[in-house]
């Protein structure tokens, strides 16, 4: 099942929380070879993430994911392309797992791989019918679909505070759903417009999403 020479498993230091897991996932997504990540914690069952197929296996439902697991150790090992590991278990799509890890890993701090002031834009929508989300998060994702923004600008346009906007950027970045701007980029015109009238910024963020807000009021949704 595992690639030849893959018997050496590298062990990482024990930690508390999802930070080390998120950092390992992000770095592994950059690797060109197929990898399997195993997370062991004193608080829950082993978690496997197969980057070759974009799936994970965990006996525990995501709704029971601890916010701060203890004694976390992360193992990584290369696997054979086209020969996914453990075919007898029920693997599931990875997005909901990464969304949840991204929510807990850094709180409202910036993810370790993101730089202050960098602008991000959406490059694919997460599958929101399978991911628990809030109205505010839909608003932020739709905003990122239309321009490159910093966390501060994202908050400004959507009426969210900057730490909340940063957390959503962390979650989307861990999933590979946002891309950073390739270089220095001026803010979109709408940002300058709202910044020029700060007293109207909060009202603008509501009125800018009028159709959406009225629909959520009518149909429900957090």
């Amino acid at each position: 099942m595992f690639a030849s020479g893959a018997s050496e498993v590298r062990e990482r230091p024990d930690t508390v929380g999802w930070r080390s897991v998120a950092t390992a996932i992000h770095s592994m997504r950059q690797l060109p070879m197929p990898m399997l990540l195993t997370v062991v914690s004193s608080d829950c069952e082993p978690l496997w993430v197969d980057f070759s197929t974009g799936r994970y296996y965990w006996e525990r439902p995501l709704t029971a994911m601890p916010e701060q697991p203890g004694g976390v150790t992360v193992y990584s090992q290369p696997i054979e392309a086209g020969n996914p590991p453990y075919p007898w278990v029920a693997w599931r799509a990875m997005d909901p797992l990464l969304w949840q890890i991204g929510r807990y890993a850094f709180g409202t701090d910036r993810a370790t791989w993101m730089r202050p002031g960098d602008r991000y834009a959406l490059q694919r929508w997460p599958n929101l019918t399978e991911i628990p989300h809030s109205t505010e998060e839909i608003r932020m994702i739709a905003t990122l679909a239309n321009g490159y923004l910093t966390a501060q600008e994202l908050g400004l346009l959507t009426g969210a505070d900057e730490p909340t906007a940063q957390r959503v950027l962390n979650m989307l970045s861990l999933m590979g759903a946002v891309k950073p701007a390739g270089g220095p980029l001026a803010p979109p015109a709408v940002v300058a417009k709202v910044q020029a009238e700060p007293q109207q910024a909060a009202a603008a963020s509501t009125s800018n999403f009028g159709f959406f807000s009225r629909l959520r009021d009518k149909m429900g949704g957090r």
């Binding site: 929508w125 599958n127 929101l128 019918t129 399978e130 109205t135 839909i138 608003r139 994702i141 739709a142 905003t143 679909a145 239309n146 321009g147 346009l157 979109p188 015109a189 709408v190 800018n208 999403f209 009028g210 159709f211 959406f212 629909l215 959520r216 149909m219 429900g220 949704g221």
Partner: peptide, 29 residues
């Protein structure tokens, strides 16, 4: 692009909400 069960009102509301948010966001920009 979302997976959806067309019998699920909750999932359809998510789709419709995203459509509305996209229309609003595009108009804002």
């Amino acid at each position: 692009v979302f997976t959806v069960d067309p019998r699920s009102r909750d999932q359809l509301v998510v789709m419709l909400s995203v459509l509305a948010a996209n229309v609003d966001s595009r108009a804002m920009f």
